[in-house]
């Protein structure tokens, strides 16, 4: 496993796109934090606005910005192997497929964890610089939102790798992580408010990406349609787990 981890570590750090995507994620997060902090400079600082600044939008955005960039790094980790045919040298170097996939996930998770925490830290610094203080970080709901944010980033990153492996390429995986949360789930969510389609309402709690967003929800239960934060997070985690299990099984069974 150590050799596989070393392989993956060199692989991820010698790819220029890794650094571009991480820099983009951090800069966009910073830009979001800065603009919201400046815009709310003279307003009372409730936990909602603090959470929005620190997490880059909280549950108000359909996709968490930083997580999307890390999901793309995850997609590249597996999808590029097929896009550029490197799966052959990879598997003749690390032939045990489960070991390889585990190493990929461990390195990606560590990267996501570090980038997620650095992003939070940078946003804290920006908030302190603009506001001069930062209240309520250890109070509810921020004491749940901040770890929820890190978990969400981790789950998106793993999902990216799982989708890249499942589709054995990059484009289809990118379509899923962008179109499903931004179009498909938003449509179902909106339609659930139409009286004739109210039977959709119970489905909404099981929309995986929307459920995942509840990990960073800043105001308790939204519209009463979702499970609580951690159960909703569990729905998203279950979705990620299912995609990963299918991708893993197919990786072990299919020709490289």
């Amino acid at each position: 496993m150590n050799d596989a981890l070393r392989f993956e570590w060199v692989r991820i750090r010698t790819l220029p796109s890794t650094w571009w995507l991480i820099a983009s994620a951090l800069l966009l997060g910073l830009a979001m934090a800065l603009s919201v902090a400046v815009a709310t400079h003279d307003e009372p600082r409730g936990h909602e606005v603090v959470g929005v600044v620190l997490t880059g939008g909280g549950a108000n955005v359909p996709v968490p910005l930083i997580a999307v960039f890390l999901a793309v790094i995850g997609i590249f980790a597996t999808g590029h192997e097929y896009r550029y045919g490197t799966i052959q040298p990879t598997l003749t170097t690390v032939p045990r497929r489960s070991t390889l996939l585990t190493a990929k996930l461990v390195v990606l998770a560590a990267t996501a964890l570090v980038v997620g925490l650095v992003s939070l830290l940078l946003n804290v610094v920006v908030a302190l610089l603009v506001w001069g203080d930062l209240p309520g970080l250890t109070d509810w709901p921020l004491n749940e939102v901040l770890p929820g944010h890190v978990v969400l980033v981790l789950l998106w990153t793993v999902l990216g790798a799982a989708l890249g492996q499942l589709f054995r390429g990059v484009p289809s995986a990118l379509v899923v992580i962008l179109v499903v949360p931004l179009v498909v789930e938003q449509l179902i969510f909106s339609l659930s408010f139409v009286p004739m389609l109210d039977w959709l309402a119970p489905v909404v709690a099981f929309l995986p990406f929307t459920a995942g967003q509840q990990l960073v929800h800043l105001g308790g239960v939204v519209y009463g349609q979702f499970f609580d934060r951690w159960v909703s997070g569990g729905v998203f985690a279950a979705f990620v787990g299912i995609v990963l299990a299918v991708a893993w099984t197919r990786f072990n069974r299919r020709d490289a």
Partner: peptide, 30 residues
């Protein structure tokens, strides 16, 4: 395996933006 069997089945099995040296260093690390 790479220490016992050197195998190349595809001519361009490398990432286009990773240098030749880094490509080999990656395989060496594994």
């Amino acid at each position: 395996p790479a220490r016992e069997i050197g195998a190349v089945l595809e001519a361009k099995a490398f990432h286009p933006t990773r240098s030749a040296r880094d490509h080999l260093r990656m395989l060496a690390a594994g």
